[in-house]
Design a binder for these strands. Structure first.
Lengths: 198, 198
DNA sequence: ACCTGAACACCGTTCAAGT
DNA sequence: ACCTGAACACCGTTCAAGT
């Protein structure tokens, strides 16, 4: 009711969303983004292997669409962690949430930063990643002098992104790789460290 | 002369090294580590598609062997950058070299941190990555109190790894992605930043 | 001991149809 | 407008041979 009745067997426009949802489900089952394939996504959506080509020009386009959802989720996680709190603690909470997100969804996280559709990142993907970064960079901007805000934000991003990457690749230890809470706690500890003494 | 003569058409033991060299060559042609396949490596080594299975149990094992060479090269690059110099400047030089390495060989860099052979990292790969990390962590240990050395080293590693990862994924800008010198300069700038003022 | 060739089950993609 | 089916060129891997 609401949409045209009498069809039934068609996906009546939902197939695109079904394929993205299937992609997210595939990525949740393991950390390997190469497990997400066009045919497997079509299989899970209950549709023929060629049907996805009616909604995505190629595999990279599906990957980019899934990655875009990933950045929207990351942005939501960062906003929730920030909590509108005040100052430095909000920044630390964002960093912990960033690392916990990667650790909880390593396949999605790897895809988000590896998905370049034919060498070029689609605009929707750029917008979604910029929106996620804005949550972090605005928090940093509220803490430091305006002239160094851009570089401080980039530095904070690089630090949490490095922790997240090393953690999910198992370079820091088994606990940091498999336990989002442990990884988040490590991130908070490293964020609180002072710079090397002069 | 030196090895048994009269063979000629055999690779007489060099095939393993030829395949690793072919793998490195493939990775140098583009940033995508999935371009490195067993059949393509065999093709470049001038050998049948099945020959690699005499030297590697599966594809992951070849990837791990190539990644191991990558970590040996990274260790050499860090040692050369450190230059036995003194103190903080040597650390900054290592960070810049780390990022320049990733930017110059993005395919190899991605493989190094993504290669888990059947879920488990081979021992040679672990040793090679630990040796590279030791160059950085020993430099940090010479700069900070012993009780915080481990965390300070991990923090420095995460920061340069994050810069490197974001740079090769094109998240920082085109210059940082394609120009190793520009990426290295950015890394040095971020390493010199003080922490946020209290 | 080391390599080859045919075969199998996948995959992304193109083309010609189906309703 | 949206989906299907057959076909093509790949890929990793297994098996049975070849020298």
């Amino acid at each position: 009711m609401g949409s045209k009745p009498g069809k039934g067997s068609y996906h009546h426009g939902e197939l695109r969303e079904s394929l993205i949802a299937a992609g997210l489900a595939i990525l949740e089952e393991g950390g390997d983004p190469s497990a997400l394939g066009l045919r497997e996504a079509a299989r899970r959506a209950g549709v023929s292997a060629m049907a996805p080509y009616r909604h995505f020009p190629d595999k990279d386009a599906l990957l980019a669409a899934v990655a875009t959802v990933g950045f929207e989720r990351l942005r939501a996680a960062l906003e929730a962690a920030d909590g509108g709190g005040e100052g430095r603690e909000a920044l630390y909470a964002q960093g912990a949430a960033y690392v916990a997100f990667a650790c909880a969804q390593p396949g999605l996280f790897r895809l988000m930063f590896g998905a370049r559709s034919g060498g070029v990142r689609p605009e929707a993907l750029c917008l979604a990643s910029a929106a996620a970064y804005a949550v972090l960079s605005e928090r940093v901007a509220a803490l430091v002098p305006a002239e160094s805000a851009a570089e401080e934000a980039l530095r904070s991003w690089a630090l949490v992104h490095g922790i997240a990457s090393l953690a999910i690749d198992g370079m820091i230890g088994e606990a940091a790789r498999t336990d989002p809470q442990a990884a988040a706690a490590l991130a908070e500890r490293l964020l609180r460290l002072e710079t090397l003494p002069r």
